[in-house]
Each structure stands twice: as structure tokens, then as C-alpha cells.
Design a protein around this nucleic acid. Structure first.
Lengths: 231, 231
DNA sequence: AGAAAACGAGAGCACTGCTCTTGACGAATG
DNA sequence: CATTCGTCAAGAGCAGTGCTCTCGTTTTCT
């Protein structure tokens, strides 16, 4: 059904995929803003206007790249998690962190597209939200399972979230069922530390300062694992 | 001396400032990539080529905006810190965090220019590094003073940084004299959580999830203050 | 007063995203 | 088999971009 119908549809699907691939390559060399439909067309031996048969605008092509990116990152994270012993919650958290970082280092411009400043004039459509949650879903699962197994111990003195945050906590709990409010917010904070670190490293904020970046990242994420309370 | 020499130099300084101001306004409405020298020239009633008498390239104009941005953020942070009792280290940390967040919310596109994905094809020159350290210098000072006053208590179970990180810690210690290695890395992690949170909030990652953002941010940064060990 | 430097204006180059029209091809229908 | 209809690549064109070069004019320095 979806695999092949008419010859026309097959070649159309193939060309669409090829356009996205070339665009991804250009993204890797030129960066997000340097993505040019005309350059993609040139590389395909097409005339620029023909591209618009496949992607009605530059933003639609961007949307495709973004969704693919979220899925690629999500899959990398899922694999990193799956490679761990399911009861080793701190290890799984650490593996997920390294999974994010390594994917980002391997695909810096795609990462920038997902977690950097929004492309000017581009408004992410609703299609992207499902894919966007894929990586954080893994994190939620780990914490949820750890909590169910009694393997989440709040650090001493951890402040309790104030009452107005109950609704927000409830929403986040959709990704980590059963987890109490204060753990939810410790996860959220760890999550921002993870992506904040990776962004800093990728966007040059660590230049001339942090050199042994793998080790430093590993240490920082262990620290955040403890802050979550995983054991 | 620097205030005024010839009439020509005065009007040149004035025009240079006006170009940067208009560019900043355009940045605020169009975003980083939408900054157009021709549009700036139009708004000034000049012809586009005349702009190049003042800024040899678009990148040079960007550099000016970036340096101004780092200084504006740094000044906001310094003021936020100065408004606190000097012995209230957790309060000063929290004030700095809110200072960063509020400046970012007030100048989202400038923040994106500083901490978002790098502008494609743009390479930040060395001039920017001095200004870039202004905000983090404040943070270093707080922690350094807190440590000197014996007001930094490591959380129980905090892991010690592995040996290879000694050099990196030494470099960071330039901003927080006297602070031991493990506190240095807890600061670094808190720093990434701070900017990671602000970036997530600004770049839309919290959409439909975190609604009471001020309260959530406050709670998260209190948590990170505890992780640093401030008291 | 004369030389030198700085300046604004204008034309022009190579590039961008995007639109519209034209003519050719393929596939389903009569 | 022949026709019709939707799909397609191509080309020209529009409005915009960063940037360069030249050409008179004006201001400053010697």
C-alpha cells in the first residue's frame, strides 16, 4: 500500500527523499540559514522552481528536517538507554546524557536547528511536537521506573515546589507517571542542565575554558543524576 | 578628547551609534537573520552603500550588537547582585538568575544572538570574549566570597571531580579564586542549568507544559543554589 | 591655498525565495 | 486505441539581499 503504487508515486517519494538528504548535507556544511533551495536544485540537476513541486516552501523543507532530526535524536537516546541494564537507573540516566551529547556533536547543525535559536520567520507547526517529545519520553520512563522500584531518594534539604506549580507538575507527570512533584522539578532542572551544557559546548561558550569536555560532561551529569536522586 | 574633535568626527560617531540603534530595533522585530543593511540604510534615508563607510561588513555590525548585548546583560546582572545584602549568598545567586532571565525576556532576540545558535558564516572575533565574561564574573565573585566566608557546604554524596579535570578547574578558578575543584564544577553545572532553562523558555521548549514560568524558574534555581552548596 | 582624506550617491554583480506560464509526459477513462 | 486530465521540469521574471566600484562633492590637514 504505502510501499509502492504507481511508478509516478514511487519516483516522487524517491525524489522527495533525495531533496531532504541533500538539504541535510547542506545544513551540515552551511548551517541553518545557509540552506538554499536553489543550491539543492543545482546539486540535483533540477531547475529551482521544480523543487516547489515537492516542498511548497523553504519552511516546509525545514519542517521535514526538524522532524527527522527529533526522530534521529530520539532514536539515538532510545538505543543508548536500551544498552543498559534496566535496573541501573543512574547508569541509564548517564547513558541518555551521553547519547544526547554524542548525537549533538555528530550533527551540530541539526542540533542547532532543534535546540538553538528559532530560525527567523519560521514558525514550527504542530507536526513537530510529537517527534520533539521522543527523547524526553525516555528520560521520563527511566525516572518513573526508578521511582516505582523505590530507587529515587531526594537529596537532603531539597526544597518542596510551591503550590502554584502543581498544575505544571501534573502536565509533566504525563511523561513520568507516579513521580511526586519535587522529583518532577528536579528532573526538569536536570533536563535543562543537560541541554544547557550541550548547547554551551556546541555554541562555543566553553572555548579556552573546558578542554576535557567528555570527562567534565560525565562528571556534571553524574552530579545531576544525584540531584534527581537516582540510585 | 574622545568627546569631540572635529565636526566630522562628531557626526560620524553619532551616525555610527544611530546605525547600531536602528539595527538593534530591527533585530528586535525581525530576528538575527532578518537584519538587513539595506533596510537600516532606508530607515536612515541613506543609500545602502553609504553604510559601509561606518561598518565594513554585516558581520562587523553584528559584532557591535553582540558586544553591546553582553555588556547590557552583564550590567543587568551586576545591578541585580548589587541590590542584595552582600552576605546573603543564596539570595544573591537567585537574584543573578532572575536578572539573567528578565533581561532575556526583555530582549529575546539579543539573547538569542548571544546564547542561541551561532549566526551561519559568522565567526565571533576576539573582541567579544572580554564582554562575554561579565555576567559569569558576577557569579564567580558570589561563590568565591561565599566560600571565603565559609558559606559553601557541599551536599552529601557529591561526587569528586576526576583527576583529568584539574586543569579545567584551574582555568575556571580564575573567576572564583580559592574555590575547590568540586565546587567549581557544581557551579559550572548550575550555570548550564540557568542558561539552559532560559533558553528552553525563550526558544519555545516549555510550550504547553510549564505555564507558571516565573515560579518554576525560581524553584529550579533555588534547587541549583542548594546543589552548589550556598547557604 | 592646495593636497588629502572622507563622504553620499548611484550603478552593478551575484545571489536568494518565490510566482507564473508554457509545453511535454504519463496514467486512468471513454 | 484515443482522449482527457493531472503532474511535471523548465524558463522568465519580481523583489529583495550583501557587497564593490566609481564619481563628484565636501571637509580636514598641511
Amino acid at each position: 500500500m504505502t510501499a509502492s503504487r504507481t511508478a509516478r508515486e514511487r519516483v516522487r517519494a524517491e525524489l522527495t527523499r533525495e531533496i531532504a538528504d541533500i538539504a541535510r548535507r547542506q545544513l551540515a556544511t552551511e548551517g541553518a540559514g545557509g540552506l538554499s533551495l536553489r543550491a539543492v536544485a543545482r546539486e540535483m540537476g533540477m531547475v529551482s522552481s521544480a523543487i516547489y513541486r515537492y516542498f511548497p516552501s523553504r519552511d516546509d523543507l525545514l519542517t521535514t528536517l526538524i522532524i527527522d532530526g527529533y526522530n534521529a535524536l530520539g532514536e539515538a537516546v532510545e538505543q543508548a538507554d536500551a544498552a543498559c541494564a534496566s535496573g541501573d537507573y543512574p547508569g541509564r540516566w548517564l547513558a541518555v546524557c551521553h547519547g544526547v551529547r554524542e548525537w549533538a556533536l555528530a550533527h551540530p547543525h541539526e542540533y542547532a536547528l532543534l535546540y538553538g535559536s528559532p530560525v527567523p520567520g519560521y514558525q514550527a507547526p504542530q507536526d513537530t511536537v510529537a517527534a520533539r517529545l521522543r527523547d524526553v519520553t525516555v528520560l521520563g520512563l527511566i525516572v518513573s521506573q526508578a521511582h516505582a522500584a523505590g530507587a529515587v531518594t531526594p537529596p537532603a534539604l531539597a526544597p518542596a515546589p510551591p503550590a502554584p506549580l502543581r498544575e505544571d507538575a501534573e502536565r509533566v507527570r504525563g511523561l513520568m507517571p507516579g513521580v511526586p512533584d519535587d522529583v518532577v522539578f528536579r528532573c526538569l532542572t536536570a533536563w535543562t542542565a543537560l541541554y544547557g551544557w550541550v548547547s554551551f559546548e556546541l555554541f562555543g561558550q566553553f572555548a579556552n575554558t573546558i578542554e576535557d569536555r567528555h570527562t567534565a560532561f560525565d562528571h556534571a551529569m553524574r552530579l545531576m543524576g544525584q540531584t534527581i536522586g537516582l540510585r
